[in-house]
Computed example of a mutant assay.
Amino acid sequence: MQASDKGVPKSQAALDGQTLRIGIVQARFNDAITSRLAEACIAELRLLGVAEHHIRHVTVPGALEVPIALNAMADSEDYEALVALGCIIRGETYHFELVANESGAAVTRVSLDNQIPIANAILTVENEQQAWARAEEKGRDAARVAVEMANLMEELQ
């Protein structure tokens, strides 16, 4: 049965998190920013109906460690969707590109290998000002993406 068949507009049903379990992995590097991402994400998940006890939030040192924690959560089969949170700010060396590219590719690989939606909100920005300008909205966006994609995957199976 499709969401629209239940008398609920598809867009509203797609954002119904009442039955979902969501895992969040937050990188602690640039902690003030990533904590703001996490706060906004968790608040939005609650607004979408995800029960407090169905949200698992863990932290890891940095963006390169996010995928391995996501993979462990995916392997557990305890979650309908996952969220990756982090903040990579460009510096003066090639390290920014390495971390941004490798963390992004690894998050995608975990999602595809495990057939689990992962909302990737690892910010890649030029400076701290850009990160702060995006943190709250991207945290909320990640929650909405996780819920919508979890519901879509359920519908497609």
Rank of each mutant, 00 (worst) to 15 (best):
R36K: 14
R36S: 05
A38W: 00
A40Q: 01
I42H: 00
I42S: 00
E44R: 08
L45F: 01
L45A: 03
L45P: 00
R46E: 13
L47S: 11
V50D: 04
V50F: 05
A51D: 12
H53Y: 00
H54L: 03
I55E: 00
I55N: 03
V58H: 02
T59P: 00
T59V: 14
G62P: 08
A63K: 00
A63G: 14
L64D: 04
P67K: 09
A69M: 15
A69I: 00
L70P: 04
L70Y: 02
A72M: 14
M73N: 05
M73W: 04
A74L: 02
A74H: 03
D75L: 15
S76R: 02
E77Y: 07
E77G: 11
V83H: 00
A84G: 10
L85P: 01
L85A: 05
G86I: 01
I89A: 05
E92Q: 12
H95Y: 10
F96P: 07
E97S: 14
E97F: 04
L98I: 15
V99H: 03
V99G: 09
V99I: 15
N101P: 00
E102A: 13
E102W: 03
G104M: 05
A105M: 13
A105P: 04
A105K: 11
A106I: 09
A106F: 08
A106L: 15
T108S: 11
R109G: 04
S111G: 13
L112A: 12
L112E: 14
D113C: 07
Q115L: 13
Q115N: 15
A119Q: 11
N120P: 09
N120R: 06
A121T: 11
I122E: 07
E126R: 08
E126I: 08
E128D: 12
Q129T: 15
A131L: 09
A135C: 11
A135K: 08
G139V: 15
G139S: 14
D141Q: 14
D141W: 12
A143S: 08
